[in-house]
Amino acid sequence: MFFKKSIIALTGLFLCIFLIVHLSANCILLLPKDIARDLYNSYSTTLRESLFIKIIAYVLYLSILLHVVYALLITLRNRKAKSQHYSINNFRENSSWASQNMGLLGVIILLFILVHLANFWARIKLGIGENIGLDANGHVNVYEVTYGLFQNIYFVMFYTVLMIPLGLHLNHGLKSAFMTLGFYHKKGLRILAKTSLIYATIMTVGFGIIPFILFFK
């Protein structure tokens, strides 16, 4: 159980780092249209052709898989540890809602990831759906796929609203991953709690606002 918890923490931290890189790349989309298209398409071509990124991509798939499977196994075991639920439980008086519902938040994020993969990964990597053209430099026009998707207000709403559960999950997950791995410095933990909040806020606002900006661009 402890091994599984440590793996959940380690994979979670790796995914946190991944999100920073992901958001940084998304910021390219905020540039003026022509520059954004060139830069974004050449960036995605570089990623697709790099062996290093290929390895990192497999580490990423494995991380998500281990994070989900082990979290599921731990949750099932934890449920067994509570033989019967209380008829009244005022848990909001002693803990945050997010910390009590990490599993639910995780399921929502997983559903988001599936839709997200269908929107981009399936189209670009697997070639499912409409044919994607090339841009002036001969790169696959990933920018157009992104821009096109966020002309649909429903997708904009979906991508924005679901960043809230992500933020809640990250805020609790980041600090508790460190604690699971044994970080117990008192002052350090106070700084960590603040860092988690700032990190989660940046991720939620950052990922959430870009689709909106593209919609009105």
Binding site: M1, K5, N78, A81, S99, M179, T180, Y184
Partner: peptide, 27 residues
């Protein structure tokens, strides 16, 4: 079960035992 650091325990503990103890046990 296993600890997911909700922090509820340290709020209910009559002896104010800090949740930091759990992180220290983990290391």
């Amino acid at each position: 079960g296993s600890c997911t650091f909700t922090g509820a325990c340290e709020v209910e503990c009559p002896e104010h035992i800090s949740i930091i103890n759990i992180a220290e046990m983990n290391v």
